[in-house]
């Protein structure tokens, strides 16, 4: 079972005791973790908009990206950026493949959300098992050995990779808003998520667009998988926890909206870090799920949501 202690966050939390410094440290750690959750949540909601089911295999795309990077970097020694590109594309194609081979045919049969969820659990198991058979099931660091640059912000510390994560989060947020609201492609995607039947009648090629949604969504998860791998490391089961946090962030933010997922990522990360500070790092996942249950019970539409829960 996986547990990410994001880069020594705990040590920092334990050592500092002055209120302001502590707050700053928690804030910065939250911003870092929020980037991971935010990207996972935004990419998850992108596919969710088109398909309306919880795709549990989405997180596995993070593992696919991370391991493809690992393979290209270690075995073929491609240059760094080429490895990142390879990992992202591999994840995107895997996502597209799951849609074409499994989800699209099921959609045509009118399968319910629960069925698709159970099937996606199967896909998750298959991907995890295949990765473990190829690369072994143990945890492996991705970072190129040697220098890990880090910056000092007041009393807090943030590594170079973590700044990339934060920037990725902001870029993905801006990029998805642009894509969805400023381009023709985005208008089509939104048309599908509002009403697939009508969109199809109007001549929109829904399955093609949903394929693109899957590709982009999985590619973003793959990118996050690589970044997490560089920050800590990769293991075959990493995707599932990335996904659960992404889904939780998406739900508490108000599912099916990009701003909601972005805000949900921050809210989840900040609550988790406060909880971790109070209770200890090992309770992180429990805190996340208790938060989720609280939201589902008392505010099912999420922080920014307006739709049904």
């Amino acid at each position: 079972m996986t547990f990410y202690s994001f880069s020594g966050m705990l040590q920092c939390l334990c050592k500092r005791d002055k209120g302001m410094e502590l707050f700053l440290q928690i804030l910065i750690n939250s911003v870092i973790v929020a980037s991971i959750y935010g990207v996972m949540a935004m990419s998850f909601t992108l596919a969710y908009r088109g398909t309306r089911f919880f795709n549990m295999a989405h997180g596995a795309m993070g593992a696919v990206g991370g391991y493809m990077f690992f393979f290209l970097h270690q075995n073929l020694s491609w240059p760094f950026l080429a490895c990142v590109f390879g990992g992202v594309v591999a994840a995107g194609l895997t996502g597209l493949l799951t849609d074409r081979l499994v989800f699209m045919p099921q959609r045509k049969r009118g399968a319910s959300g629960a069925v698709l969820l159970v099937v996606s659990l199967g896909i998750l198991a298959v991907i995890e098992a295949v990765i473990a058979m190829i690369f072994s099931s143990s945890f492996q660091p991705l970072a190129p050995m040697g220098e890990i640059t880090s910056y000092q912000i007041g009393p807090a510390r943030i590594s170079e990779i973590q700044t990339w994560m934060v920037m990725t989060n902001l870029l993905v947020f801006a990029g998805m808003l642009f894509l969805l609201y400023e381009t023709k492609f985005g208008r089509l995607l939104r048309a599908i998520s509002d009403d697939q039947e009508v969109a199809r009648i109007l001549g929109i090629r829904t399955n093609l667009l949903i394929g693109w949604m899957f590709f982009i969504s999985a590619a973003l998860a793959g990118l996050m998988g690589i970044l997490v791998g560089l920050d800590t490391g990769v293991e075959p089961t990493m995707g599932f926890y990335l996904l659960l946090k992404g889904v939780i962030a998406a739900i508490i933010g108000g599912i099916s909206g990009v701003p909601g997922a972005f805000v949900g990522g921050f809210f989840l990360a900040f609550s988790e870090n406060l909880g971790v500070w109070a209770l200890g790092g090992a309770w992180r996942d429990a805190i996340a799920f208790i938060l989720l249950l609280g939201f589902l019970l008392f505010r099912p539409q999420g922080i920014l949501g307006s739709r049904e829960g």
Binding site: I251, D285, A286, F289, L293
Partner: peptide, 25 residues
Amino acid sequence: SRFRDDYYIIASAGFTVIVFNILMN
């Protein structure tokens, strides 16, 4: 009992994770 379908599944997963965390910690 407050949830249906997919939300039921996700919420029920939460309890397995919470109990796992309790056993672990």
